[in-house]
């Protein structure tokens, strides 16, 4: 199972980002979300959304094995074991592996909680095999 996105349906509202940060960090803070919204305005006037495909490339390079599989079969970051080395970041093909030491003392990524799907009103996000 993984998260999918149809960027053409995204309206850039960021509800998914708030829901994500609330789940990952118990914070209202879209800057600590694991989806990547890239608006292209004023032209051509489209939103681009990147999401984790659960490819596991991040986990494969993690020197402390902090990136593990959860009960949903998704890779997640065990915050206690992350040392902020950033090895995972360049491995991510979708730019949704985050290390921002000024915001959090561990890396973060999508854990497939599904809250982003629950709040998206335009059907841009869904979970499937």
């Amino acid at each position: 199972m993984r998260l999918y996105v149809d960027s053409t349906k995204c309206s850039g509202c960021r509800a998914c980002l708030v829901a994500c940060s609330l789940n990952l960090f118990q914070e209202n803070n879209p800057k600590k979300a694991a989806l990547n919204l890239i608006p292209h305005f004023p032209a051509p006037g489209v939103y681009e959304m990147k999401v984790c495909t659960q490819c596991g490339d991040c986990a494969a390079v993690c020197p402390t094995e902090a990136i593990k599989l959860n009960e949903r079969g998704a890779y997640y970051v065990d915050f206690d074991e992350c040392n902020l080395c950033e090895a995972c970041v360049p491995e991510c093909p979708e730019d949704v592996m985050y290390v921002r030491a000024e915001l959090a003392n561990a890396a973060w990524k999508c854990n497939l909680c599904g809250d982003c799907v629950a709040v998206c009103g335009t059907g841009a996000l869904w979970i499937a095999d």
């Binding site: 509202c13 509800a15 006037g45 009103g121």
Partner: peptide, 19 residues
């Protein structure tokens, strides 16, 4: 209209972006 454009946190975006 080329895309819907939502304000913060809106599941029913009324904003329409036009070309």
């Amino acid at each position: 209209v080329i895309t819907d454009k939502g304000c913060f946190g809106c599941p029913c975006p009324c904003g329409k972006y036009s070309h």
